[in-house]
Design a protein around this nucleic acid. Structure first.
Ligand SMILES: [Mn+2]
Ligand SMILES: [Mn+2]
Ligand SMILES: [Mn+2]
Ligand SMILES: [Mn+2]
Lengths: 218, 218
DNA sequence: ATAAAAGTTTAGGGTTATCTAAAAAATTAT
DNA sequence: ATAATTTTTTAGATAACCCTAAACTTTTAT
């Protein structure tokens, strides 16, 4: 069984590796975990001893099949709890992350299955991120940044890339939400900002940065 | 702020002291916390330094006003979570304790207030124990063990004293639940067991041990 | 190709929470 | 009242996690 801290490291490695695809460097882990490289090296050895990652000195780590499965369960719990907080307790989407960081470590298989059922088996969390099922599978929809779109097609907002509270609040304030259907009215050459129409009734301006952090499907 | 472990010790001291009334001995704490006396002494010093308890060497500890307030918040969280697990996730009352032991340490004032609201401000948990409100107050109903009752009066089951899963399962199996209205049909002289009528329609035998662990109002 | 810079690991500590064994104090028994 | 017993505290270790500083390896620049 993994400790609270081991779970956090493993989840970070999973995300940094792009769902397990590529190797991750010590410095990248230190950066996201807000710790020193020396601490990361210590933890890498522990996770390696538990076969959660494979480690080659000076060349970073790769997550193992087993490690990926464990990481996916932490991600599942995080996203189910975020969904609970928003849908049942009426948190706003910018308030849930820190609480979910704690709740994701509660150890009880029964709890998470019952929570999943209570929420009626949601497939995405409040930020549009997929929720792995109990076997670790989730639907992958090909999403592109809004900044890569053009033309007058209907576009659906699917997820945020950066989930910082300030970005989420900015989106709420401008009426942008997961599931909204928009069209691009104009792309400003000068700064890359977009004028968009939301649900056919609300015109707003979205900065380039914002459009790069919104994932959509056309 | 208190650590996870400090919260557990403080809650144990609160319960052992009879809600803060009497002093608690090192050995009692060691017993309930499943640790050694030496570890308790260490923790006592920490909690004392944080003004949660007052400590006189060799004479045990007393919980302070501040310590009682902190302990009450942990108790509040524990009982709200147990209520959530039973009422919303359909756990049975014998399954909730260990999960609530973890959930009670989640740090988020917003979470607990929203949870309280979601549950519509319950006053007792699934075991009949009172839930302190956000200021730490709770209703104290004078309850007596069923074993102290006699006669044909209507008696209401209010709480369990011992919340062990096996006892709770025994009660469920025999149709005994919090809120049930019973009458004593017969008290067996020989072993102190009781024959009771539940809700005017079900006759069951309850051992002396069980009757001592059921708290009721007449 | 060599030197400088950047990144990683090792060495040596600090903190929290736990333990065992020994010392000290309080309680109980004679 | 003294001795035996029990309880509590202190002393000294260990494990998990994190740190700084120094050593080592890899990468980049000249
Ligand atoms: Mn999150
Ligand atoms: Mn999320
Ligand atoms: Mn409980
Ligand atoms: Mn309870």
């Amino acid at each position: 069984m993994l400790s609270y801290t081991e779970e956090n490291y493993l989840k970070a490695i999973y995300h940094l590796s792009g769902s397990g695809a590529k190797a991750v460097l010590t410095s990248e882990i230190a950066e996201t975990m807000n710790t020193r490289a020396a601490s990361v090296t210590d933890m890498i050895k522990k996770l390696s001893a538990k076969n959660m990652i494979s480690y080659e000195k000076y060349y970073g780590v790769k997550i193992t099949r087993q490690g990926k499965a464990e990481a996916l369960m932490v991600v599942r719990k995080h996203r189910l709890w975020e969904t609970f907080l928003v849908q049942k307790l009426h948190f706003s989407w910018d308030e849930v992350h820190d609480v979910a960081e704690q709740l994701e470590h509660i150890q009880s298989a029964l709890l998470i299955e019952k929570l999943d059922e209570f929420l009626e088996f949601p497939t995405v969390d409040p930020h549009g991120h997929p929720i792995p099922d109990k076997t670790g599978k989730f639907v992958e929809v090909r999403q592109i940044p809004l900044s890569d779109c053009s033309g007058k097609k209907k576009i659906t907002i699917r997820a945020v890339r950066n989930g910082s509270p300030s970005f989420l609040q900015y989106l709420s304030k401008n009426g942008v939400y997961i599931g909204a259907i928009i069209t691009i009215l104009e792309k400003i050459e000068f700064d890359g900002s977009l004028e968009i129409m939301i649900d056919g009734k609300k015109k707003v301006f979205i900065s380039r940065e914002a459009s790069q952090n919104l994932l959509v499907t056309e």
